[in-house]
Amino acid sequence: MCRSSGSPPVRESDHVSTPSTESVESSVYIITSGGRKIQAQANILASASPVLEGIIDSWKKHSRFDKTILIPGVPCEAVEVFISFLYSNLCNEEEMEKFAIHLLTLAHVYMVPQLKTQCIKALIRRLTIENVVDVLQFARLCDAPDLYLKCMKLIANRFKPVEQTEGWKFLQNNDPYLELEILKFIDEAESRRKSTKKQLQAQSLYFQLSEGMDCLLHICTEGCTSVGPYDKEPNKNRAPCSKFSTCQGLQHSIQHFATCKKRVNGGCVRCKRMWQLFKLHSSICDQSPDTTCKVPLCRQFKTKGKHVNNKKEEARWELLVRKVEAAKAVSSVSLPKTKKLEHQDYEQQEKPRSFGEAMNCHVSVAC
Rank of each mutant, 00 (worst) to 15 (best):
L136Y: 12
V133L: 04
I120S: 12
K184D: 12
V109H: 03
A122H: 06
L136E: 04
L104G: 02
Y177K: 13
Y177P: 00
K150I: 02
L115M: 00
D187W: 07
I186S: 04
P176M: 03
I155Q: 04
P145R: 09
E181D: 13
H108I: 00
L103M: 11
M111G: 01
L183M: 10
L123C: 05
V133P: 09
R140A: 10
P176Y: 02
Y110R: 01
R140N: 12
F159R: 11
C151E: 03
K121H: 09
H102R: 05
P145Q: 11
P113Y: 06
L183A: 04
I155G: 06
Q118Y: 01
Q118F: 03
A139W: 07
K116T: 00
A122P: 00
L104A: 09
I182P: 07
P113A: 04
E181G: 01
A139T: 03
I186Q: 04
Q114N: 01
L103P: 05
A144I: 04
I182W: 04
R158F: 10
V112K: 02
I124M: 13
A100S: 15
M152D: 02
P113L: 08
T105S: 14
D187I: 06
R125W: 10
P145L: 11
A122Q: 06
L178D: 03
Y177S: 12
M152R: 13
D187K: 14
Q164D: 10
E163H: 14
N157Y: 05
P176K: 04
K150W: 07
F159K: 08
L123N: 03
W168E: 06
A156P: 05
H108R: 01
L141A: 14
R126Q: 14
N131V: 12
A107W: 01
D134P: 06
L149G: 03
D143E: 13
A107L: 00
T117R: 12
I186N: 09
V109Y: 08
A122R: 01
V112I: 15
Q114I: 04
T128V: 05
D143Q: 12
K121W: 01
A107T: 01
L183N: 06
Q118W: 02
D175G: 00
Y110Q: 01
Q164K: 15
K169L: 07
L106E: 05
D143M: 07
E179D: 00
V135P: 08
L178I: 14
I129E: 14
D143T: 13
Q118A: 11
Y110V: 01
R125S: 15
Q164S: 14
T117H: 13
L104R: 06
P113K: 07
Y177Q: 11
L106N: 04
A139F: 01
P113H: 05
P161H: 07
N131A: 06
M111F: 03
L178A: 02
